Every structure is written in C-alpha cells, then in structure tokens.
Amino acid sequence: MAHGTQMRRHLCGIQTVWTDAGEAEGAVASVAEAIDRSIVGHLIVFFSPAYEAEVLTASLAAHFPGVGVSGCSTSGGISPAGTIERGLVVIAFPRQGFRIVSGLLTQITRLDVEGAASTVRGLRRLLDQGRPEGVGGHRFALSLIDSLANAEETVVSAVAWALDGIPLIGGSAGDDLAFSSTILIRDGVLCRDAAVILLVETDFPIRIFKSDNFEPTQRKFVVTAAREEERRVSELNAEPAAREYAMAVGLDPENLSTMSFAAYPLAVKIGGEYYCRSISRVEPDGSLTFFCAIGEGVVMTLAQPRDIVEATRAELEGLDEALGGLDLVIGFDCVFRRLDAESRQVRHRIADLYKRYGVVGFETYGEQYRAMHLNQTFTGIAIGRAETP
C-alpha cells in the first residue's frame, strides 16, 4: 500500500480507501493495491479537481475491469480518518449484501423531464430483475450532479417523482471553489452537464438524513429582480442585492466574501421548514449569484448560526441510536459548512465527529435530500451494523 493510502473494511462488507497521492495514476494504483478486488461490485469515487480526470478514469477502468464506477470532482474529500484537501476517496461496495444499478442523465441544462423519469423507472425495473428470489431489501437512490449546469432542482424533482417513494440523497460536484469545471465519471466516461443516478438495494438497515445548524431571524428579503436561469438576484427589497444583504449583516458590500456567505446564509420556508439558499459570489454589478434557483417574488429570511458541532453531534448520535450502531455514513457536506467551521475554529471538532462515526464522502456545492436541492446542509445515508434477518 502506497504511503498516504489507508483502507477500512466495514462490517457490511464495504471497503473505504483514501489516498493523498499527488497524481491520478498513482492514486488509483495504490487504491487497487489496498482493496480486495475479488468481492467488489461497484465503486463510488470522489476526487480532487487537481487530478487529470482522463487519466483517473482510464486508470480506474484498467485496475477494476467489469466493475461499475460512479464519481465526481469535489471541493474536499471526507474519509474515516478525516478530511482530505487533495486526493481520492473510494467507497467499494461488495456484490454480497448490495445490489446497485446506475444511469446517466445528459444535457441537464435543458433536461427532458419525461426522459429522465423514464431512465429512473428503467433502473427500478433493472433492480427488480436482479433481485434474488425471496429477497427484499432496503432501497435508496444516490445522485451526483454537475453543479455548474445550474439544473439540480429540475433533476431532483424529475428523479424523485420517478423514484415513487424511494428516498434520494446526493451531492453536487465541486472544484475547490474555482467554479470553472466540475466533472462526473460513470463507467469509464467523463461527463459534464450531466447527473449520475444510482439505485441501491441492501440487506443492511439504513436511514437517510439531513442536518443543518441555522435558525431563522426576523429579517426578511423579497427578491424584486432576478435572472432565474442564471440564479442571479439583482435586487432585494427593491435595493441593489449585495448592498441590501451587506447592510443586514453589518458588513461593507466591498468586503463580502465566501466566509461572509457561509456565516450569514439566507433561507426559504417550504412546507413549514426552512432551507438554506447560499450565495456563491458577488458579481461586479452588485448582484448576487446563488447555488440554488431563486426567482422573483421569493421571500428569503436571514438565518443565524447555532452551534455547528452540537447540531452535527446530535444528528450522528440520533442515527447511531436509531440503527443500533453505525457502521458507516456516506455523507454530502456543503463546502460552506467547512468554511463556517474554519471561521469559528471548530473544524477539528467536526472532523473528530466524522471519524468517530465513520463518515465518508465529499464537500459539495449543494446537497440533495428527497425532492429538494439544498445548501449549507449535511445530508447522507447511514448504514447500520446489524444485518437484516
């Protein structure tokens, strides 16, 4: 096993491997050396945008012939040993105990909703056909979406509709806050303007979850001018958007940064619950671009932070109790949560929690939960220790 590469075998048979190797070919080679490849049925890979994606994809195909591969670029990996700034995180599902099928949605900027739903229904049929006689498992769906296509809402609503009750969780690909090129891979092919959808059936107990650490204040904003297709808001409360937001949080509009947006998110109320709508950047004209779709007339509420460590601990402890012990958690964690934790100097405490509960995943530009696309949230699938009788 190469220096900087570690592996953990979980009770359910999943192997998680992570490496901080500097280049793609060496990273894949060290992962392949660490894994028992004879039992692997599907790989999910989260990789640094610093890697050459073509080399990574070719190396995975060479080292894991006949194995399904799904993955995306990140703004940081999460391994059972902690977060990885640059490198590769691999979740290797065994064929025993997990049945997985995957599909690709293309040209999601102008998504054919009926076509997408048809693809998902086809995956459900495929999973039904592959099910051993008399076996009934727990199902969930997992989405990896090109965030720069600005199409998560359309994708998630179409997919959730076709899943007919199977819970969906997932994350939007990242690129270390460069916002220039996010990449998906599926079975040896590099994809942009796309979404990878996996359907998983397992013999092990599971729970999907979402956690955030914000609560609404009394301060409201109405979106009075926006270009929805660009997720860009030019006016809040009939004032220039950046200036109105900056005044509300007590900052100079000239000094707004990703740290400001991480510390002071906006939220919308849907069905009695508040969901974060994070700002990605200030444009030169003083408008604000968001990670989520925002239309004119939407009312947004300024949110204030609660203790991010306590909120995360409570979520993971609850999952641990509900499942009779956590085996691992596949997690999708907004990159803005990391920035917020860094600014509050508690990132190491979050990392300790993730290590304790076996969280593996990546830092995202957005999270999916059921039929929702979210920001500044930690979502995922928790897998319990006990095998279902």
Rank of each mutant, 00 (worst) to 15 (best):
R385E: 15
Q107I: 00
V282T: 13
V28I: 02
V113Y: 07
D333T: 12
A53G: 07
L353F: 03
Y275F: 14
L148C: 06
E52D: 08
L198C: 06
S143A: 15
L266R: 09
A267F: 05
C334L: 10
S181G: 05
I35P: 03
R124I: 00
E25F: 01
L190G: 01
V309K: 12
I294K: 08
D307Y: 11
H42A: 15
I197Y: 00
L316F: 15
A141M: 03
R344K: 15
S260A: 15
E229Q: 02
A195K: 02
G324M: 06
L11E: 11
H3C: 14
A382W: 10
S79A: 13
A238V: 06
R186W: 00
S38C: 02
A263V: 10
F336I: 03
C191L: 12
E239R: 05
A116P: 02
K220M: 14
L319C: 09
L127V: 02
E363M: 10
S143R: 01
S280T: 07
H3K: 10
E25S: 05
L168N: 02
G4K: 02
Y245W: 03
P253Y: 08
I91H: 00
A178Y: 04
P305V: 05
S180M: 13
G324F: 07
R370K: 13
L316V: 11
F64H: 01
P216E: 08
L302H: 11
A241L: 07
R131I: 03
A386T: 14
R9K: 13
I39S: 03
M1P: 13
A311T: 14
A61G: 03
F93Y: 11
E321L: 09
A382H: 12
E215S: 13
S181Q: 09
S234C: 12
S70I: 00
R356A: 15
W18C: 04
V113W: 06
L142S: 03
V335W: 01
D327C: 11
E201N: 01
L43F: 00
S234L: 10
I145C: 10
C292I: 10
A226N: 08
R227N: 14
A92P: 05
G82M: 05
V282K: 13
T289K: 12
R356Q: 15
A162P: 01
P305N: 10
G134L: 15
T312Q: 14
L326G: 06
T388I: 11
E254S: 14
P253K: 08
A225T: 12
H373Q: 14
T106A: 05
S260C: 13
R344T: 09
D20G: 03
G165N: 07
E33V: 06
F332A: 02
Y245T: 01
E23G: 08
V299W: 08
G271N: 12
G174V: 05
A34P: 10
D193M: 10
F209N: 11
L302C: 08
D128L: 01
V40R: 00
L199D: 01
T224W: 09
E296H: 04
L104W: 00
R227M: 13
A248I: 07
G295E: 14
G82W: 03
S118N: 13
R370A: 07
Q304I: 11
S118Q: 13
V113G: 12
V309L: 07
T388G: 14
V282Q: 10
I206V: 06
E228K: 12
D252W: 09
V113T: 15
S143D: 06
A117E: 12
A158T: 03
A241Y: 04
G115R: 05
D212Y: 08
